Amino acid sequence: MTCLLLPPHPASVSTARRWAAPLLPADVRDGVVLVVSELVTNAVAADQAADATDDIEVELVVDRPRGHVVLAVTDASDRPLPPPPAHVPAEEDSGRGLLLLDALAEDHGWVPRPCGGGKCVWARFRCACTPLPTGPTAPRHLECTDAA
């Protein structure tokens, strides 16, 4: 499990993408990075709307033995995650994040934050993870976990 704390500021979106990309298996990298971008964008907007000052938490778990990656992003909004829209007009600049989440993730959802105030949006992606090399050359940040 790897975690990143970010201020609720628009610049955090690109920081999250750059942080996540090297941690991910190649076969899911582009899709997960795209969803990271969308979820962090939504979290920044929710935190700014709530005038929240708490950091946004982005968590990645690469579970190679089970063949999946789990992404979780917190935000300050207590509102449930809405269903993806049926249609977004081409001229709209936003509104596609939940469509992308629905299309790219194997499963996704949200839970209220246990400490109160806000929620955690999560997504699970199926990957063809290959085992890490053994020995001192295995990077620590990509070690297998038994997390959900």
Rank of each mutant, 00 (worst) to 15 (best):
L132S: 08
L39A: 07
A20R: 02
A147H: 15
P139A: 12
S37F: 02
D102L: 03
P10S: 08
P133L: 12
P85R: 09
P83V: 09
S37K: 12
T145K: 06
G118V: 05
T15P: 00
E106Y: 04
P8V: 05
S94W: 11
S94L: 06
V32E: 02
T145N: 07
G117N: 03
D51G: 11
H141I: 01
L60M: 10
L5M: 12
T74M: 02
L71P: 03
T145I: 03
D47L: 08
A123D: 04
E59S: 13
D102F: 03
E143I: 08
W110Q: 12
D78K: 00
F125T: 00
K119S: 13
C3Q: 15
W19H: 11
V121L: 10
L81A: 01
P139H: 05
L4F: 07
P10F: 04
L104V: 08
L71R: 06
L81Q: 07
T137K: 10
A147C: 13
V73F: 05
P133W: 09
R126Y: 01
D55C: 07
R17V: 12
I56T: 09
P80A: 11
P82Q: 06
A52D: 11
P8S: 11
P83A: 13
L99Q: 14
E59F: 03
W19N: 09
L6V: 06
P65S: 09
T145D: 13
A52E: 11
A11H: 08
V44L: 14
G135R: 09
E106T: 13
V33T: 15
A76H: 04
V13C: 10
A76L: 03
E91H: 12
G109Q: 04
A46Y: 09
W122K: 06
G116L: 09
L99E: 08
L104E: 01
S77L: 03
I56P: 09
L142Q: 14
D75N: 14
L23W: 00
V69M: 02
F125P: 00
A11W: 02
A26C: 08
P114H: 07
R18W: 01
D146W: 04
C3N: 07
V40K: 04
E106C: 02
A123F: 05
V58S: 01
V36K: 02
A76K: 01
A49T: 13
P131H: 10
V70R: 14
W122I: 04
D78T: 05
H87N: 11
C115I: 04
R64H: 11
E92P: 00
L24R: 00
G118K: 09
V32A: 05
R113S: 06
D146G: 13
L6Q: 08
V69C: 04
V58P: 06
E92Q: 12
D75S: 05
H9K: 10
A20F: 09
L142V: 14
C120R: 15
M1K: 05
D93Q: 07
A138T: 11
L4T: 02
G135H: 06
H141N: 14
P133E: 11
V35S: 07
L39E: 06
E91G: 12
P65G: 06
V33M: 07
L142A: 11
C3Y: 02
A52F: 05
R124L: 06
C129H: 12
A49C: 01
G95V: 06
V111G: 00
V111K: 03
D63G: 01
V32G: 01
